[in-house]
Write a protein that binds this DNA or RNA. Structure first.
Lengths: 226, 226
DNA sequence: TCGCCCCCATATCTCGAGATAATCCCATAA
DNA sequence: TTATGGGATTATCTCGAGATATGGGGGCGA
C-alpha cells in the first residue's frame, strides 16, 4: 500500500468511529469489538485500541477494564448535568463572540443560518434529515467560533458533541410539536447581528434547555403511570 | 506475575506519566520516548503508546505523527487563553458551589485551607515545597467540589492541570514578591463560609489572573530591552 | 424446579518483532 | 567556510499471536 500521506492509521480509525458515534450509526451502549472494527478498517487490533482509548478519554465511549469498550450511554442525570454545563458555557462563549467577533465572523454566522433555514429538517419520508443535523451543528459552531478563544471553543464543542448522543434517544420519544426551532435560530441570529450579548446568551440558553426539558417531561410521563 | 487487581497496565503507565508531567519531573517540551518509558515501567511499547495517546487527547502531551510525543509546551498566547477560560469557568463553578454546597462541603473547604495554611510554601533550602503544591491544589479542588456537577468540575480541573504546566517556567522568572497568596486564600475561604457568591467569584478570578499578569509582565520586561 | 459451581468459548490485553519514516552525520562541491 | 545531498542510524508505527480474564452453559446437589 504505497499511498499514505502523513497521518497515522489510528487517526483515521478514530475519525471514522467518532463520526459514526456522533451520527448515531453506532448507538449509545453499543459494544465496540476489536475484531469487528479491525476487520472493517483492515487494521490491527492495536490500532483500534488506540482509537477507542482516545474516544474514551474524550467521553464519547467508556472503557471497562477486561470488558472492552462501549459507546457512552446517557441517563437522565448525565443529560441534566451536561445541559447545565452547556447552558452556562455556551451562553458565556456566545457573549464573548459577540463582543469580539469581527465582520467576517458575523457574515459566516449569517451564511450558516441561511444554509440551515433552507435545509428541510425532515425528509419526505418523515425521517430526520442528516443534512439538517449537519447544518444545525454548523450554525451553532459558527456562532461560537467568534469568541477568539480556542480553549473555550473546544470545551463548548466537546459538550455539544457529548450531548448529541441523546439525539438517538430523543427522536423516538419527544416529538416536541409546539416548538418553533427555526424561529429560535432566527432570533439567535438577529441577536448576534444586533450585537446584543445578553439577549443572545438568554436565547442560546433557552434553546439548549428546552430540548432537555422536553426529555425530562417525557421521561416522567412515562415513568409515573407505570 | 500473579498479582493484578483489576486495572490495566496502560492505566498504570498513564497515571504515572501524568503525575510526573504535573509534578514537573517531565518538563514541558520533553520528548516521551517509547523505549525509554517501556523500559522504566517494564511494559511493552504498545502500552506506553496507549497511555501517551490518552495524555495527548487530554492536552497534557502533543502527538506529532511519525515524530513521537512531547510534553505540551505553553506559550504566552496559550497561557492567556487558558487563563481567560479558567477565570470564567472557575468563578462560575465556585458560585454554583456556594449556592449548592452542603455543610459537609463547607467543612471540607475549611479543612483543606487549614492544611494549606499550615504548610510552608518554601522548603528551608528555599525551593518550592511539593507538599504545599499538593495542598494548594487540594484547597482549590475542594472549593470547586461543591458545585454538584461532575461535568463542570472535571472541565475546571482539567484546565487547572493544564495551566499548572507553566509552573515549571514561572518559578524561575516571576518571583512575585509583593503578593500575599496566603491572604488571597484566606479571603476566598471567608467568602465561601459567608456564602458570598459574587465576592468569592471575584476573588477566585483575581487569584487566577494575577499569576498570569505577573508572567506577562515578566515576559515583556525581558523581551523589550533586548 | 431452583440455585450453585465448574468448565469452555470468546474477547480483551500484552508482547516483541518487522516495516516504515524521520533524524543525524559526514562527505562533497561551491 | 557554508550549503547540499546521500547513507546509516534511530525511533515510530503496525502487525499477529500468545497470555489472561470474563461470561455463558451444562451438570450436580438440594
Amino acid at each position: 500500500m504505497p499511498s499514505r500521506i502523513s497521518t497515522t492509521r489510528s487517526e483515521l480509525v478514530y475519525e471514522e468511529v467518532r463520526k459514526e458515534i456522533l451520527r448515531g450509526a453506532l448507538p449509545p451502549g453499543s459494544r465496540l469489538r476489536f475484531v469487528e472494527l479491525a476487520d472493517r478498517f483492515t487494521v490491527s487490533q492495536s490500532v483500534v485500541r488506540e482509537a477507542l482509548m482516545r474516544l474514551a478519554e474524550q467521553g464519547l465511549a467508556v472503557a471497562l477494564p477486561q470488558q472492552g469498550f462501549r459507546v457512552r450511554t446517557l441517563n437522565l442525570a448525565d443529560l441534566n448535568e451536561i445541559t447545565e454545563a452547556r447552558v452556562e458555557i455556551e451562553s458565556l462563549v456566545v457573549r464573548r463572540a459577540i463582543a469580539r467577533g469581527d465582520l467576517q465572523w458575523e457574515s459566516s454566522v449569517i451564511a450558516a443560518h441561511h444554509t440551515l433555514a433552507r435545509t428541510p429538517a425532515m425528509t419526505e419520508a418523515g425521517e430526520i434529515n442528516d443534512d439538517w443535523v449537519d447544518a444545525h451543528e454548523a450554525f451553532h459552531h459558527a456562532t461560537l467560533q467568534g469568541c477568539g478563544n480556542g480553549t473555550l471553543l473546544s470545551i463548548a464543542t466537546s459538550l455539544r458533541e457529548t450531548a448529541s448522543l441523546y439525539r438517538w434517544w430523543s427522536g423516538s420519544m419527544a416529538p416536541d410539536a409546539d416548538r418553533d426551532v427555526a424561529l429560535e435560530h432566527r432570533q439567535i441570529l438577529d441577536a448576534v447581528v444586533a450585537r446584543d450579548e445578553m439577549n443572545a446568551a438568554c436565547l442560546v440558553a433557552q434553546h439548549i434547555q428546552r430540548t432537555t426539558d422536553a426529555l425530562n417531561e417525557a421521561a416522567t410521563r412515562l415513568a409515573v403511570p407505570s
